[in-house]
Each structure stands twice: as C-alpha cells, then as structure tokens.
Nucleic acid binder design. Structure first.
Length: 454
RNA sequence: GGCCACGUGGCGGAAUGGUUACGCAGAGGACUGCAAAUCCUUGUAUACCGGUUCGAUUCCGGUCGUGGCCUCCA
C-alpha cells in the first residue's frame, strides 16, 4: 500500500512518488501575520501536520523536509499597523508569537524551516532579475511585472484560460500593465511603508515571489508537495508556478494539495461580518486536541462546518478515551509501533474520518487492563497527534483552568455524602443541584464521589 | 458568465455494482436511593429525473441546490 494524494493539478487521486526518498520535500503556505489566527488558518496547519507525520512514518523522520513560510510584509499588515498606530515590526513579531502559541496548542509539530519573507529579500531580487533577464518580466513605472502572456502554460493549475481571464477581469487594471493578467513582482513603497533597496528603486516584493524564492532556497528548484488552502490555487500558486518555472525551466512542484474551507455555524466565515472564530479564543474552554479532533473528523478537502456542537462531541470522545487510559500507569503502555489500520486510512489521501472510526473500533475492542490492546489503541491515536497528554492532567484540566474553589466543592460533597449516609436524600439532591449550578457534575463510583466540570 | 469541488439518517461522517460503517443525539434496558459515568439493545439516509445493468447510493447524462475561485482571502 502506498500513499495516494489528491492532486489539484490533475484533479485526481494519484500515487505519491518522491523525487528523492531520502529527502522528501513539502512546502506549505503559512500565515500572513497581522492578526490572531482563526480556525480557517488552523485547518491547513493541522492537515499538513498530519501529512508531515505520515511522510515521516513512511520515509523516516530525518528524510522529510517541511517548509511553512511566514509572510511578514504585505499590504494587509501595513493597513493593520496603521490602523492600530503600531510599528510594523512589533505587530508582526507579536503576531508570530501568537501563531506559535496556537500551533503548539493544537499539537502541530514544528516545520523543519519557517522562513520569513523579510529575511529573503535578496533571494527575491535575484529571482526577479533572472526573470527580467529571460524576458519574462518587465519594469514599468517603478514596478516589476510578470508578463503572463510569455508563459504559455499560465493558468494550468487552476484550469483557467488566459483570454477568458482577461475578458472576465473585474478589477481596474493599472495602465502600466501590458496584459491585464500580469502581476507584480516588485513595487515601489511609499514614504512610510517598509522598503528595501533594489535595482528598481526602494520598494517591496509582490506577494507571490517570496514563496518561489524561499522554496527554491530551502527545497531546490523542484520539490514534491506544495500545499495550502483552496483559495490559494488562483492566483497565488498559479503565479508561483509561472515565476519558478520560467526562471528555472524546470517543473516546480509535483503534487498540489489543497484543503477546503471552513464555515462557522453554517455561515461563510467572514472577517468583515465578524463571523469567525480565532484559535486563541477557544483556549479558555477547550483543550488543543479537541480542536484537532474536530478539525480532522472532516476530510481535508470537504468543506468544514465549525460548530460548538462538534467541539463538544470531540471533547466528549477524548474524555472517554482519556478516562480509559487513566487506569494504566505512566509508561506502562508501549507506543513504539505504527498501527497498520490507521496507516492504511491515511495513505488513502489522508482519510482521517475513517482513521477516527478505526480508533472508535479499537477502543471498543479494548478490554479493561489489557496492556497490549491499550498500547495499540494509544499508538494508533498518536499517529493522528491525539492522546498525547497525560490522562490525569487531561481529566483535571478544567478544574485547574476554571478557578474552581476546590475546598468548597469537596466540603459540599462531604456534606452530601453525610446526608446520603443518613438517607436524607432530599438534602443530598439539594446539594447536588447546588453543585450543578456551579457547573459541577458528580459521579458516585463505588464508595467514592468524583466530580468534574461540565 | 467561466473554471473547480460537492450533495449519504436529527447531526457529524466513511464505504460500496448486490447484506450500507462508525461517532453523537434519540428510544429501551442493566447499574444507582435517584442521578451521573459505564455497559447492552435499538429506529431512521444515499437531492431529483432519465440511461446502462439481472441489480445503482455507487457508472453515464441531465435538472435542481450548496460552496469556492475568477489579481494579492487558509
């Protein structure tokens, strides 16, 4: 059984064959850093984390290179900084820290490299010069533009036809463009905008060139997988292909993997309408693995509807699994092996929903105290980045996190148990109702009373 | 208008040319002083219309609907 991935380029699921099995290379478009990441930003982080883990399993941990860039120069950043009267560098630095907190929280492994656009300006300038030299780009009014009509294959990823694109163009086209579909490689900066010295005057790069320059530097002119959200197919990835393939005369990336969009409670996620959920705001109420499980219970190419109900379902599932694991001592379970059932599901274009159903089956087959079955269940879950916390910590997380007055709770429980001993069940139930109003649920197990936060 | 993806039970979500998973919720039961937790049992679905076929949810065509993209939004 070998890995199959759905490739946007061919619009079909195809067998994955790396250029070099001892160095499998993947580039994923990361965030533009001007605000907290929302769940739509988190989706590719988790999806490609699953793929990264899988590739490491197949080819060996050291034989996979995963690059996820950070876009830290961009119009949106400049706008956001101006709006907040904040220094651009401070804003991007702060946002990068938020992003790292978020990725850690959702259990994503660190990529091998996380290059920043502003640290690769010379590489971009060099690439642009190469394109001008080869006559794929031209200078106009301080801008450098890519000449889309010079690249006969322009539009091949998104299945667009150049003439139709021009006909359907709905934006005002700057008159210095030779063809409407030409795009900016370099543009002049205004007085108060970030700028770098270049052969074309002080300016800054266009959006697409960074990915071409940084992927080439870290992964070479050709690499295996290029990923990102569906919305990047056009124009971003289309333009990357144009830049890189024209500059190098080589195929850019062999497999194009794109994740689907996220809606929130059934409605389109829209920043301007305020209909979006940041990862950060979920931290108060849900542990990171809850986010992860909710995210991967839908196949990555399907649209994902983000709802509180689904989060709660995921939480319930993980609580159940962790409760079972709690009955084992630390280190008692062996998680060395990959599970072949989960592996098979993931090899089939990252079929995470199927993998989760397999986890449910394995859990069902677990018997109390059976170390071998529990080990298998746990290692299977670990392949998805799940059940990596200590059970005791997981189960008491809410108690620790919610400013509960534990002494008071324990006291009420003691009072209730005394009432129960005296068969004063009315009073016992009153106390339980009182605790319930505090968000605490009781579980009488054997002679003991456990409590948890709802 | 063009291109792409997609329509499975109350919800989430797999799979398949012929007995349709799995989870949540619902119902019933065991346990419990009653609950909770847990366990057992259980009902319900393949958007619509044609075609191919012994047989289609699955393949083909069409209709309707949803989402995305069409110059810088993951």
């Amino acid at each position: 059984m070998s890995l199959k991935l759905y490739d946007t380029f061919t619009n079909s699921k195809i067998k994955f064959d790396p250029i070099d099995p001892t160095n499998v290379r993947m580039y994923v478009c990361g965030p533009t850093v001007y605000d907290y990441a929302h769940v739509g930003n988190a989706r590719p982080v988790i999806v490609f984390d699953i793929l990264f883990r899988l590739l490491q399993n197949i080819y060996g941990t050291k034989n996979v290179t995963y690059v996820r860039n950070i876009t830290d120069v961009d119009d949106k950043i400049i706008d956001a900084a101006n709006k907040a009267s904040e220094d651009i560098g401070m804003l991007t630095e702060k946002t990068i820290n938020y992003f790292h907190d978020d990725t850690k929280y959702i259990g994503a492994l660190k990529p091998t490299f996380e290059p920043r656009a502003t640290e690769h300006i010379p590489e971009m300038i060099e690439l642009i010069e190469k394109l001008i030299e080869k006559d794929f780009a031209y200078v106009a009014e301080g801008n450098v533009l890519f000449s889309s009509s010079k690249f006969s294959e322009y539009g091949k990823l998104s299945g667009k036809d150049l003439s139709e694109m021009i006909a359907g163009s709905r934006v005002n086209v700057e008159n210095y463009k030779r063809t409407e579909s030409d795009f900016v490689l370099w543009k002049p900066s205004k007085e108060d905008e970030p700028s770098w010295n270049s052969p074309w005057g002080n300016g800054r790069p266009g959006w697409h060139i960074e990915c071409s320059a940084m992927s080439e530097k870290l992964l070479g002119e050709s690499f295996d997988i290029h990923g990102g959200g569906q919305d990047l197919i056009f124009p971003h990835h289309e333009n990357e292909i144009a830049q890189s393939e024209c500059a190098n005369g080589k195929k850019f990336a062999n497999y194009w993997v794109h994740n689907g969009f996220v809606t929130v409670e059934g409605n389109k996620m829209s920043k301007s309408d305020g209909n979006f959920v940041t990862v950060n705001e979920l931290k108060d109420n849900f542990q990171g693995e809850v986010i992860r499980l909710a995210m991967i219970s839908t196949h990555y190419r399907q649209p994902l509807n983000w709802t509180i109900a689904n989060l709660e379902e995921s939480k319930k599932t993980l609580d159940k699994w962790y409760s079972y694991l709690e009955s084992f001592n630390e280190g008692e379970l062996d998680v060395a092996d990959n599970d072949s059932d989960i592996m098979e599901a993931l090899l089939d274009d990252l079929n995470t929903p199927k993998a989760i159903s397999i986890l449910h089956q394995k859990f069902k087959n677990c018997e109390s105290g059976n170390i071998s079955l529990a080990s298998n269940f746990l290692s299977a879950a670990n392949m998805l980045g799940l059940l990596s916390e200590k059970p005791a910590e997981w189960l008491t997380w809410k108690q620790e996190n919610m400013n509960i007055n534990k002494a008071q709770v324990e006291l009420l429980i003691a009072q209730r148990n005394e009432a129960r001993m005296n068969k004063n069940f009315n009073k016992a139930d009153e106390i339980r109702d009182e605790l319930d109003k505090m968000g605490i649920t009781l579980e009488d197990k054997g002679g003991e009373t456990d409590w948890k936060v709802k």
